[in-house]
Structures are given as structure tokens and as C-alpha cells.
Simulated assay, not measured.
Amino acid sequence: MKPSLPANPHHIAILRLSALGDACNLVPTIRALQRRWPQARITWIIGKGEHSLLAGLSGVEFVVYDKSTGIAGMRALWRELGDTRFDVLLHMQLALRASVLSLGLKADVRLGFDKARAKDAQHWFTQHQLPAHPNAHVLESFMDFARALGVEDDRLEWNLTIPPEAYHEARLISGEAPYLVINPCSNVRLRNFRNWTVEGYASVIEHAWVQHGLTSVLTGGPSPLERDTGVQIQALCQPGSVINAVGDTSLKGMLALIDRARAAIAPDTGPVHMANAVATPALGLFATSNPHRSAPYQWREFVVDAYPRAVRTYLDKSVDDLAWGQRVRHPDAMLLIKADEVIARLEALLAHTAAEGTSDER
């Protein structure tokens, strides 16, 4: 007989290893669980980089798994949790590696995605699946786990921990004048194709500097592609209009930079969701992925959405013809986004949030 989902769980496990943006989108689910069961223990099995971003999250015990350690790392994690039994395991990672990892965890019941959302046969590794939720945003898909356990209060709350030293790091980079954060590159991986042009970013930086007196701070990881992109953008900009901090921040420092920024601009990548999580106005640039699924949740109306054009141009279809979440894997898709579109959305975003001012006190 299939075990029932617990009515009053005492120890909840969450299995979600990656990525940075998804980890940010999951936090409201944790807060909803904490509001419903404030005495329950919550253990989050998480990736190494994601943990460095979310370390200190209140009421959460983290167990870090470094996927580069392979099966040896799995065995080490199983030994670490060998004496721990969970009332329920929320299996939120759609990857075979994570499902194999889940086999070594002790849980009374395992809850995963419904078949329509499950990939890599995840439903084979769980006893309960979520109710169907067609065309759900990633954040809503995570919140469905709390709803499946009976949580009704699903309002959004993050309260991420940013230590004083991270704000100090941010101030050393940005100074005290108002600024934008621009994270020009997404993750460096095969057939990602989410990056916009250096010329486009330079045009936006020029506009923000001339029209609003806003310096732009470039952020990103230390990969050669990201560093080179930052150098190329800076070379096209007026002196003083841009600060190139690509590869030069910790993740907490980047989060602090974003938290203090007037707004953040990025393609479909972690920093645009980090902005969403700290209530910084976020402008997402989308052509290869569907913003209705993965835009910064609270700023969806301000995205630049070239996804329908990319679907027509490179797949010869309409969005309605595609499976939910299908990407346009073409290297020229982001070229469909024009600088004038981004500038217009930035103007709308700045006008919408003008009454809020900046957050220089942080």
C-alpha cells in the first residue's frame, strides 16, 4: 500500500541541487512550509554553489552535495544522513543523478513532480506525484509541493541572509552613487545561447548614464567567456559609465550588489532571479526560453520577450505548438532583441519603481 503524505511532518527533506535561479525560486516554498509548521525541521540537500549563495537561510539545515564528486560524494552524503529519517522527501530535482542520490535517503514517503513535468523518469523514484499544473512558472511548480502537503498560505516571502561583509564588498565595488547591475552572461554550457550582444549592453549603459546618471556595474562568474564579455562591453562605453566587476565578487557580494542596485538586467540566468528574491527591480532578456515559465516572477511584466519571434524564426512554429519549457537552441536567437526594446522596458521599470527610490542605506 502506498504511504500517505504526512498531515503534520516533523522533519522535511528537500532535494534540489541546482541552479542558482531555481534555488532562489524555491525559497518561498520553504517559507510557506515554515509558516504552516514552525516547529518542523527542514533539511535542504543542495549544490555547492547554491549553498554559498543561500547559506544562513533561517530555519534551514543544509547538506551540501558537490556533483563533481560523483558516486563517492553520494556515498559520503548517504553516510552523513545514515541515521536520519525524514517524514517526507520533496524531490524537486529533475535529473537522473538526483534521483539516484535520493535512493540512499531514508524517508517515509517521497513526493515528486507529476508525469507531465517529471523528466528522466523521476516519477519512478517517488510514491506520490503533484497534481497536474499545466504551463506553470518554475516558482509555482515548487510551491505546488507545499500545496500538496496541505499548505494554504502561499504568499511570497524570501528574507535571504546577506552578511555585513557582503555589503562592504559591494560598496567597495559600487561606491555610494546609484547604479544598475548588468549580468551579461548566463551559465557557460553547451548549446545555452542565452547571451545578448556586447553592443546592445553598451547602448543600454550609455542610455542609463546619459539620461539617468546611473553607472552600470557588470557582474558575472570568472570564466574566460564572461571576463572577455565584460572587457568588450567596457571598451565600448564612456569612462565612468561602467564598472567591470565580472569575476571579482563572491556570490554573497553579488547578492549585496544586486540588493543595493536601482535595477538589475540579465538574460535567463541566476542573477535576475536573485534580484527578484531581494525585491530589486529586474529586467529579464528572453528569446531562447519562455518567460512565462522562467521570468523573474515579480517582474514578469517588464521582460523583453522575443521568445515568440524566435520560435517563429528558428522553429517555424508558434509558441502554442511547443511543449511547455522547450528552448530555442539557436545561436542567433538573442539577436532578435533590439537595444531600443531593452531601453524602453528599462524606462518603464524605472518609472514604475521611481517612488521606491534606492536602497543606499543597506
Rank of each mutant, 00 (worst) to 15 (best):
R36S: 04
I46V: 14
D83V: 09
T69C: 01
Q39F: 00
W78H: 12
H51L: 05
S68H: 10
A55K: 15
G59F: 04
G82H: 14
R85K: 10
T84A: 00
L57V: 09
Q39R: 10
R35E: 02
I45N: 10
R85F: 04
D83Y: 04
S58V: 12
G49C: 05
T84H: 05
G49N: 11
G73T: 04
R75D: 00
I46H: 09
I46C: 12
R41M: 07
Y65R: 14
K48N: 09
A72F: 03
M74P: 00
L33P: 01
L54S: 02
F86S: 07
P38K: 04
K67G: 05
K67Q: 14
E50K: 08
Y65H: 14
R41L: 13
P38N: 10
H51N: 11
S68V: 07
L77F: 07
A76R: 14
A72S: 07
V60L: 12
I42S: 11
T43V: 13
I42F: 07
G47D: 00
L57Q: 12
D66N: 15
G70R: 09
T43I: 08
D66P: 03
F86C: 02
S52M: 10
G47I: 08
K48W: 06
I45K: 09
K67E: 12
I46P: 00
S68C: 09
Q39D: 08
L54Q: 03
E61N: 07
F62T: 06
G59M: 09
R35L: 01
I30R: 03
E80T: 08
L57Y: 15
G56Q: 03
I45C: 00
F62K: 05
A72G: 04
E50H: 10
E80W: 01
Q34F: 03
A72N: 15
I46F: 13
E61R: 12
R35K: 15
I45P: 00
A76D: 07
Y65N: 09
G59W: 02
F62D: 04
R79P: 00
G82R: 14
R79T: 05
Q39I: 01
G73F: 02
E61Q: 14
R75H: 09
G56I: 05
A76P: 01
S58C: 07
V63N: 09
R75L: 13
T84N: 04
Q39V: 01
R41A: 14
V63K: 15
L81G: 03
A55R: 15
R35P: 02
L77K: 15
S58E: 08
A72H: 12
G49P: 11
I46G: 00
M74Q: 13
G70P: 06
L77S: 06
W44Y: 10
D66F: 11
A32N: 11
S68I: 10
L77D: 08
L53W: 15
G49V: 01
F86R: 14
I30M: 06
Y65K: 11
L54I: 00
K48L: 11
A40I: 01
P38S: 07
Q39E: 10
R41D: 11
A32V: 04
L54K: 03
T84L: 03
P38G: 04
W78F: 02
D66W: 11
I46A: 05
Q34E: 02
I45T: 08
L57M: 11
V64Y: 13
G47M: 12
W44S: 01
S68G: 03
S52P: 03
I42W: 14
